[in-house]
Design a protein around this nucleic acid. Sequence first.
DNA 1: ATTTAAAATATAACACTGTTATATTTTGTC
DNA 2: GACAAAATATAACAGTGTTATATTTTAAAT
Lengths: 194, 194
Amino acid sequence: MKNTKEKILIAASKLFLAGGLSALSVRAIARESNLSTIGIYKYFQGKQGILDALYIEGFERLLDALDVPINIHDPKGNIIAAAKGYIKTAFDYQGHYRLIFGEHVAEYVPSAEAKKVSEKAFMHTTKIIAGILPNDSTFEQKQQASLQIWSLIHGYIGLKQHAIADEIEPNLWEGLILAAVRLHLDALEQHSHT
Amino acid sequence: MKNTKEKILIAASKLFLAGGLSALSVRAIARESNLSTIGIYKYFQGKQGILDALYIEGFERLLDALDVPINIHDPKGNIIAAAKGYIKTAFDYQGHYRLIFGEHVAEYVPSAEAKKVSEKAFMHTTKIIAGILPNDSTFEQKQQASLQIWSLIHGYIGLKQHAIADEIEPNLWEGLILAAVRLHLDALEQHSHT
DNA sequence: ATTTAAAATATAACACTGTTATATTTTGTC
DNA sequence: GACAAAATATAACAGTGTTATATTTTAAAT
């Protein structure tokens, strides 16, 4: 027995997965859920709330992907496994990924709750990356290393959706990203032990 | 004596620089240029054409930034100089950068002409990066190296606009990006000479 | 069970969007 | 000056997110 809020969110998720943001008008959501648009305002405070729910939904998927089993003898393998999951999720849930990292279409401003999930992801990646750094590394050093790897992956994902991506075979991207990540991890490891 | 097309483009650029995409309705452009909206359709085939012109405008600024003087004795310096220019332009022209690399808001699809400018940039970065690779590197190897550096920078720029960016001082970003780029260049150089 | 009030929901209306249709003005040619 | 073509203004259309108003449903009180 689904209540109205759930019905609306299920309808929104379905539309979003199938057609991205442009499929997500309040009337489309209303039609898909066999309700009128008013519930969107009552339960989600408007369309921003719908986008927020989808943002959080997408980020939680990313977090799940980052939640790899930790093998303390193979820190690099942990990072690579997390990267693989992240990349796969980003590609499988493009709409969500774009919502999270796109430039806030239609003036969507993430809520405090949405930001909290972001911070959680950064903490998590920082922890995983710490595995290749010396034990006495500062939190800031760990954070910077994490940001470097994250930027590298995120940059590739962003460029994959760009016009220049036409010049590279679609099935090659994961391999290319992981190669670049491995190279950078080597460099980070080497650099931090000198 | 500006003709109608120029008037419209000047008005659009002004609005875009000041207020980004949300400031760029066809009626706002009409008001700013003291014309009606019809010229947008006659001269630009609609709003897509306006976005295209701004996309090309932004990309040409990026290209200019990449057009650094080449010192053949300091290939890394060349790359760093180009990276600095790219980063500065991306930060100074955020709206344009978002338009180029954002997920095509309002169903904006770049024209063939816009894509051509993108390819030009990729060729240019590939040429600059070649400076640190062995002379017998294949074009593909050069392209991959270029994509790695571009992804790293692009990723940082993208994450700067994200919620997690709140955790890092705004004026530190350029330094962080350049440090990561240097590290990766070192790694590329070392890796390609083994 | 009935009545009343509160809550939920539907529908209508608003101001905005990009676009096309129609009307009007301007420009160019003879 | 008359006429035609081109340019431009204005009106209208179907869509957007949102709020206002109307209606229905649910819950509480008697």
